[in-house]
Design a protein around this nucleic acid. Structure first.
Length: 555
RNA sequence: CCGCCCAUAGCUCAACUGGAUAGAGCAGCGGACUUCUAAUCCGCAGGCUGCAGGUUCGAAUCCUGCUGGGCGGACCA
């Protein structure tokens, strides 16, 4: 990663200046950045170190930058160093470095893009965690794509990652679910029932009821609801959870753990946690209910953990659940929630502090809601009323690749319009194919080369100086940026950056493709370009893999 | 009434988290296939970054106040 190397070099030059007494010692804040400038004329990388320190040193930034430049000039990596604008240091990298770097990338093989930025820290990602009361809808799909892709990116950046799905398999809504199925079961056998409005209306409830009917017959007909409710709940949850699992599998989303809320109660952890918080003075009683004193820890209201009827709230489970997670020893917890749950962030963080942990142990990623568009109109969605577009429908319709890519081309806190017509379209407008096509084109180059009896020789024997056109250099630079991109994307918890990178890389590749032939008339040139093609293709493969999107050999 | 998020080209979104002249893709217009895949490329056009102040070397980005949209605010989940 060239950027890191330059950053270190600049900071080292600064410390040398300090040692020589050229300028006083001021701690370098994290705001020192070495980044590629927007304008090409400003070089390959720029440092703002002089700008951020000068004011504190009461020095002119340009003068400081000049000092640093003098020290850095001896490094053969740089073709030219300029002091520009208000005091930027602009670095121009020697062409030969970019070319040689291609061999380095090639040698890294399939691991290119990986880094140890995460230092082996253990991160737990919890995402989707939809209640097992119905099928996943499109909004869950977004959470799934973001969570799964983030996990892949973190792993590539040297974090250890565990993915977890929290199943709310206990409580009031489970009773409602069981009762809904029970009533449909009665209906199945021709009984007249009154189906309450607040029950689950979707057709899938009928499907579950009839599958119970065909498996178990009418043996529950004469039983009072109370005695068979548990059976209906368990069966419904089992069926729905397994459907959810199947949908996620098809979406290429995998979990390490499926964590049941029920087990938190069965093990007594919920009660134990509450009584411990009580000992610490964070729980008080009022009007017959138990409250968590969240206001003492930054939340705007105190929250009920046990209602006056003796029933624990879901928040009580959430406290115990996060405690359980914290005690498992993760360095960082990431929860991915729908943006409509933003009100929960403060109270869960308050709970974490009450449990004696730093609140920044938990990072909550809020994923904005998805508007599904068809024919330019928004499709309404309501889970209860059974009016929603399921993830499965979307997958059957547009496919996993298009869906995942669209979910991952937006930062997650922006509202997302999912245009079904666009996702469905097999042509131009659909951005997924743009990237996949680049991979397919490169694969095709190698198919043709093989047919002509050409194969890539050892990189050491290839004359890489032949890769000297502006398109070559541009591509070489973009290839170098990949590991940095992955690391940054992981540290910022922003997997969408990968899709932007790949779109840009695809643009450069397509442009290159129309201008130059990989299989050229000249043998040496062909070898050099095939090396470039091979490395580029591997980055597409790797990058698409980070998004969970396939990299087709043919399209 | 209170709180959180959003507002950038006609549309959907970027801008490396405070950096230099705000960029892509669609849509629009004009060009490029007897040569490795035209699901592609090249060019043109498109902007007072919702409005008004403030902070500093420097603001789409930070702070304040407005405007408009989304979502929350139960002993519901």
């Amino acid at each position: 990663m060239l950027r890191n190397r330059i950053q270190e070099a600049v900071e080292k030059a600064y410390r040398e200046g300090v040692a020589k007494g050229a300028f006083p010692d001021v701690s370098l804040s994290a705001s020192h950045q070495v980044v590629p400038p927007k304008q090409e004329v400003h070089g390959d990388f720029a440092s703002n170190l002089a700008l951020i320190t000068a004011s504190r040193l009461k020095r002119s930034p340009r003068e400081m930058a000049g000092c640093l430049a003098k020290t850095l000039k001896s490094d053969p990596l740089f073709d030219k160093i300029e002091v520009a604008g208000p005091g930027f240091l602009n670095f121009f990298i020697a062409t030969t470095w970019w070319q040689k770097n291609l061999r380095t990338i090639w040698e890294a093989g399939d691991s290119y893009g990986e880094s140890d930025a995460g230092n082996g820290r253990l991160v737990q990602l919890e995402f989707v965690s939809a209640n097992p009361t119905g099928p996943l809808h499109v909004g869950h799909g977004r959470g799934a794509a973001v969570g799964d892709s983030l996990a892949r990116v973190l792993k590539a950046a040297g974090f250890n990652v565990e993915r977890e799905y929290y199943i709310n398999d206990i409580g009031n809504q489970m009773r409602t679910l069981g009762a809904s199925v029970y009533l449909r079961y009665l209906e199945h056998f021709g009984h007249e029932v009154e189906f309450p409005e607040e029950y689950y209306q979707g057709d899938y409830i009928r499907d579950i009821a009839s599958s119970i009917a065909s498996g178990e017959g009418d043996r529950y007909l004469d039983m009072p609801q109370e005695s068979c409710l548990t059976f209906f709940i368990d069966t419904a949850v089992k069926i729905i959870a397994s459907d959810i699992r199947k949908d996620l599998e098809e979406f290429r989303v995998h979990y390490d753990n499926w964590f049941s809320e029920k087990t938190l109660h069965e093990s007594g952890l919920v009660d134990r946690t509450i009584s411990e918080l009580q000992d610490k003075g964070y729980i008080f009683e009022e009007e017959g209910a138990l409250w968590f004193r969240a206001t003492a820890l930054g939340d705007e209201k105190d929250r009920v953990v046990k209602r006056s009827n003796g029933i624990l709230t879901y928040f009580a489970s959430d406290i115990a659940y996060h405690r359980h997670k914290l005690e498992r020893g993760y360095d960082l917890l990431v929860d991915i929630w729908g943006a409509d749950h933003h009100g929960y962030v403060a109270r869960v963080k308050a709970a974490i502090r009450a449990l004696g942990y730093q609140e920044d142990k938990l990072h909550v990623l809020l994923v904005q809601l998805v508007n599904l568009l068809e024919g330019g109109k928004i499709k309404a969605m309501s889970t209860r009323a059974g009016e929603f577009v399921t993830l499965r429908e979307v997958l059957d319709d547009v496919g996993s690749d298009a869906a995942r890519f669209i979910f991952l081309t937006r930062r997650c806190d922006s509202h997302l319009d999912f245009d079904l017509d666009l996702a469905r379209s097999q042509t131009q407008e659909n951005p997924v194919y743009y990237v996949q096509y680049a991979h397919a084109r490169l694969s095709s180059v190698f198919r043709n080369a093989r047919e002509q009896g050409i194969s890539l020789t050892k990189p050491q024997d290839i004359d890489i100086s032949l890769l000297s056109t502006p398109e070559d250099i541009k591509l070489l630079k973009q290839l170098d940026a990949f590991p940095c991109l992955v690391a940054d994307s992981a540290l910022a918890l922003e997997p969408y950056r990968v899709s932007y990178y790949l779109t840009e890389l695809a643009g450069q590749l397509h442009s290159y493709y129309t201008r130059h032939r990989f299989i050229a008339d000249d043998e040496d040139l062909t070898q050099a370009r095939l090396l470039l093609a091979d490395v580029t293709r591997r980055i597409f493969h790797k990058g698409l893999g980070l998004l969970g999107v396939s990299a087709p050999e043919k399209m």
